[in-house]
Amino acid sequence: MSELKGWREIPIGGVVPLSSLEYRTGDWKVFRPVIDEEKCVKCGNCWMFCPDSAIEWDGEGVPKPNYEYCKGCGVCAEECPVKAIKMVR
């Protein structure tokens, strides 16, 4: 572990020089969302509602949850209008 710095040495406001790509929240989850490609109508709701922007979507096909970041909250499954997303253990 690196040595802890004093208050004069750290940036103000607690900003961290990393993007959210560095925070892999995927290991928080118990359940993961699985999209039924047959049922999905490609509306993009899950992509829009995911609080961690963990769903990747090209704007046309079936969206893909990125399990490295998906924290398993289930919001996407709740918001899918055709119940195409199942949360599985």
Binding site: W7, I10, I12, G14, V15, V16, P17, L18, Y23
Partner: peptide
Amino acid sequence: YPLTFGPLDLFDYYMEH
């Protein structure tokens, strides 16, 4: 130049802030 505002800041750095 990505930065994160408002990350978790526990007993190791909160007090310095």
